Simulated scan of single mutants.
Amino acid sequence: MLLVDAGNTFIKWARPNPDQIFNPESVSWKNFGAVRHHELAALKSAWKKLHEERPIQHILISNVAGQYLGNILFEFLTTLKPAPLKIEWFYSRPSLGGVKNTYLDYRKLGSDRFASMIGAHSLFPDKALVIVTAGTATTIDTLSPDGTFLGGMILPGLKLMAESLAQNTAQLPDINQMNNESAVFANNTGDAILSGCLNAQAGAIERAVMTQSRQFPGVLCLLSGGAARYIAPNLPIPFRIIDNLVLIGLHTFSVQNIS
Rank of each mutant, 00 (worst) to 15 (best):
L85D: 09
M117G: 02
Y91L: 05
D243I: 07
T211P: 00
Y106W: 15
S92E: 13
S28N: 11
P173R: 08
E88A: 12
F185A: 14
A34I: 13
S224Y: 10
A204R: 04
F253S: 04
R214D: 10
E181R: 15
T102I: 06
E163P: 09
S26H: 14
L143H: 00
Q215L: 07
L104I: 04
V4C: 03
G97A: 07
P94E: 14
A232N: 07
F185H: 05
E39V: 15
P173E: 09
A208K: 05
L85H: 10
N199E: 14
A186V: 00
K108P: 01
C221M: 03
D126K: 15
Q171P: 01
L60W: 13
S95R: 06
G196K: 00
I248C: 04
A208H: 04
N71P: 02
G196D: 07
G152L: 08
D243E: 12
W29P: 06
P238F: 02
P233A: 13
L43P: 07
P145G: 13
P94L: 02
H38Q: 09
A46L: 11
N101G: 06
Y68L: 05
L235M: 06
T139P: 09
D126E: 14
L109K: 12
L80T: 01
G147V: 14
A6C: 15
N187E: 13
W13M: 05
A65T: 08
L50H: 12
T211A: 09
L73S: 05
Q67K: 11
P94Y: 02
G157L: 09
S45T: 09
I258C: 01
R207W: 04
S111Y: 00
E52V: 13
N17H: 11
P217R: 07
I175M: 13
Q177N: 15
N188H: 13
V130N: 02
W89R: 10
P238G: 04
F76G: 08
F90Q: 03
M210N: 15
A34F: 05
P173F: 07
Y68V: 04
Y230N: 14
A65V: 08
F149T: 05
F114A: 01
K100Y: 13
D146Y: 00
S254L: 11
T78R: 06
R229W: 02
A134Y: 08
Q215T: 10
L150S: 03
H121N: 11
A162Y: 12
R214L: 02
L3M: 04
F216E: 02
K86V: 14
Y106T: 01
K30M: 09
N179C: 06
R54N: 15
L160T: 13
D174P: 00
I193S: 08
M161W: 12
I258R: 06
Q67N: 03
H38T: 11
L158A: 08
A83R: 10
G226L: 05
A137F: 12
I118H: 08
G151P: 11
S213Y: 00
P145K: 10
T252Q: 14
A183M: 06
G66I: 05
V255T: 08
I154N: 09
F74G: 03
W89G: 01
H38Y: 12
L160C: 10
F10I: 09
I118M: 14
I175G: 13
T252S: 15
V64C: 03
H38W: 04
A83P: 01
S111T: 06
M153Q: 07
K48Q: 15
A208M: 11
L85K: 14
G119N: 05
F22H: 06
G196S: 09
E25M: 14
A232T: 06
S95A: 10
L80A: 03
N71Q: 15
L198E: 07
N187R: 08
